[in-house]
Write a protein that binds this DNA or RNA. Structure first.
Lengths: 189, 189
DNA sequence: GTCTATAATTCGATAGAC
DNA sequence: GTCTATCGAATTATAGAC
């Protein structure tokens, strides 16, 4: 084996490191304030490499918040106990919000980045709406109900993670489920 | 009267013009993307004048989204027909959201600007919480209920004005009141 | 009061050596 | 694959002439 002084990293590992740093930065700062330089520093990588791997900041963002990443993984609602659907949805989303930065990336970036807003609409149309549609006969009504569910969850996320409204931050997950579950339940049934 | 070539404008009118342009820009673009240059261009004023009048971009933002401007003007809830409080609150907020840019300034900027987020918390603590408190004996319960109302309204605003979720955008005010009114009513009573 | 010129940064992106 | 150097553009902010 010939030695290679700059110690080339594996391409996949580098890509993954950049993506992880990008998600964290985009989630914390939003699209505009998150800089390629800062992301590269977090990933302990030269800023030029970010460009080499992803082409542009916009493409990096798209990769960091891709539809696959914003997988809401909504459980089959019909499979839940009928009177616990609301609580199940809220508990599921709290776990998703706090376990995956991709959702906060979308939320914090959507305010100033149309790509992020579009991704939010895609996630709604592709995941929330279909899941709710299974519960209603009338498609128009299902669509409206799904939108109501979305406002509940987006409002909760905004108040808890972005605005950091004290009462919403202080509540633990259990209390949030107890308070929001019935509201979502009422919207869905 | 001696003529003054550069035609000095009245200080108040200039201030007002800058503030109006700033609110529009901050509301449309958020704090980061709204530039002093663009605000000055909208106000047909030299960018340097913005600095002269307000000192810095941060101070201009504070003035454009000051607590006085984010006056929610929540009506006395106890004065409403008891069974129409929810609908009244929703109708009131829709009118406020769409009639005053200051609220959208706050919402769109809060994602990346801590000053904006703080102002949102102030508006909640100073206006929403007290209004709701009048309806409940237990202060802790009133605080939690107020937070729930806030999530409803913030969620609605985010989906309608920022994410622009199609179903929420397409509904007219009347339908929104009909759908969200009962939810807010349930939270409040 | 108004505006020109510019300082001082910062950013995304590119070129090219190794 | 990696990194240095840098370009060109955009931004906030300041200094000073008129």
């Amino acid at each position: 084996m010939i030695e290679r002084p700059p110690r080339p990293r594996s391409s996949d590992a580098t890509r993954a490191a950049i993506l992880a740093a990008a998600r964290t930065r985009f989630a914390a700062d939003g699209y505009d304030r998150a800089t390629i330089r800062a992301i590269a520093a977090d990933a302990r990588i030269d800023p030029a490499m970010v460009m080499r791997y992803f082409g542009s900041k916009e493409q990096l963002f798209a990769a960091a918040a891709s539809v696959t990443e914003v997988d809401l993984r909504i459980p089959a609602l019909a499979a839940l106990p009928p009177d616990r659907i609301g609580a199940g949805v809220v508990a599921h989303f709290l776990a998703r919000w706090e376990g995956d930065e991709a959702l906060q990336v979308m939320l914090r970036s959507a305010a100033t980045n149309e790509t992020a807003a579009e991704r939010a609409r895609d996630a709604f149309a592709g995941q929330v709406a279909p899941a709710v549609a299974a519960l209603h006969r009338d498609p128009a009504e299902a669509r409206a109900r799904a939108a109501l569910v979305a406002t509940q969850l987006i409002g909760l996320a905004m108040c808890r993670y972005v605005l950091r409204l004290p009462p919403v931050v202080e509540m633990d997950r259990e209390e949030l489920v107890a308070r929001f579950g019935p509201l979502v339940q009422a919207v869905l049934t």
